[in-house]
């Protein structure tokens, strides 16, 4: 490791560690606020969770009993945990592709500078993004209500269904309804990400393609798409991570119900740790173990995506 590129020539590799630490004293001072936040709210909780996951611990004031890997064994046999885990995976697979496609189509259309109202459309599509989930939960409970809710009025009025559909109250439908609400809320962000990607396409390319007599759709398919394709991995990763952290929307809308039919991972963790059914104790160790397993799964996903990014980068021209 060369130190030639930094600004303290005295602290070369041959000087003692103490000297080098002293030479960087201002740097360490600068790190303090960030390190405090990172340490207190990310690093320490991560390590602590792993320790707590080995405890039988029912409530913050109660005794902690070390039980080894028992929580993990019980979790893997707990049908609620397994169901919640796969429900989180299902939710991600159901929402991310749709959200990315819809966002991309909107971005390509709105990227057209000749479209006069594109700023207005962009604003309107972005509106649900800035609407807090607690509000969305209320609005959607009303919109989708089986008792004279506007959407049910519409579809029964049009004769599409015989009886009102209980979108959020039916165990079969609830996850689909939540996926729909989620896509509606967050597509605005995906659209902005794609618009940012589209800004990297040089104007000359559109111009050149037009002079060659290529149609608008062909420009989009064969010129623009290959340029913005590498962004898909980053956007997909960000979207997948937020879909896995869907706790607020689901807790606010259905609280995991009806009959646990929409209980995703973090709702399971919250219920186990902070809102146990009446008559039972919170299980903080058990919930921590669930958190650890969930975190490991997400880390695995992240590593996969990072590898995917590396591969796409390598495939780019100039890298063989």
């Amino acid at each position: 490791m060369s130190t030639a590129d930094h600004d303290i020539p005295a602290a070369g590799p041959r000087t003692g560690l103490g000297t080098r630490l002293w030479a960087h004293r201002v740097d360490y001072l600068f790190l303090v606020p960030g390190l405090v936040i990172f340490g207190a709210f990310i690093l320490w909780p991560m390590l602590a969770s792993q320790y707590y996951s080995l405890l039988d611990w029912s409530g913050f004031d109660s005794r902690r009993i070390f039980v080894g890997l028992r929580n993990y064994r019980e979790l893997l046999a707990d049908e609620f945990f397994v169901a919640a885990f796969w429900r989180s995976v299902w939710f991600t697979l159901a929402t991310v592709p749709l959200q990315m496609l819809l966002g991309l189509v909107l971005a390509v259309i709105l990227n057209n500078r000749l479209l006069k109202l594109s700023a207005v459309f962009r604003t309107l599509i972005f509106l649900p993004v800035v609407t807090p989930v607690a509000v969305i939960a209320i609005v959607m409970a009303l919109m989708l209500s089986p008792f004279n809710g506007p959407i049910n009025d519409l579809i029964t009025g049009a004769g599409l269904v015989q009886r009102a559909v209980d979108f959020l109250g039916s165990p079969q439908l609830v996850m689909w309804s939540l996926a729909g609400i989620y896509v509606w809320k967050w597509t605005g962000v995906t659209m902005i990400y794609w618009l940012a990607a589209l800004q990297t396409v040089p104007d000359e390319l559109y111009e050149a393609a037009r002079l060659d007599g290529v149609t608008g759709r062909q420009v989009t398919m064969y010129v623009v798409m290959p340029i913005i394709a590498p962004f898909a991995v980053v956007i997909g990763l960000i979207s997948a991570i937020s879909a896995l952290n869907v706790f607020p929307l689901i807790q606010a809308t259905t609280q995991g119900g009806p009959f646990f039919a929409s209980e995703v991972m973090e709702v399971f963790i919250f219920r186990t740790a902070f809102a146990p059914p009446s008559g039972t104790f919170p299980q903080l160790g058990y919930a921590s173990a669930a958190g650890v397993l969930f975190g490991l799964a997400i880390m695995g996903l992240t590593i996969l995506q990072v590898l995917a990014v590396r591969r796409t980068r390598r495939k780019e021209p100039g890298h063989g």
Binding site: N245, A273, G291, F294, L301
Partner: peptide
């Protein structure tokens, strides 16, 4: 800056980049 410990800190940060809130909320 290339200060001693930089690699370690960067590694720790990247490792925790996508930690879910459900993982950290209890601690």
């Amino acid at each position: 800056r290339r200060f001693p410990g930089r690699g370690l800190l960067m590694g720790l940060m990247v490792f925790t980049l996508f930690i879910p809130q459900g993982y950290t909320i209890i601690p």
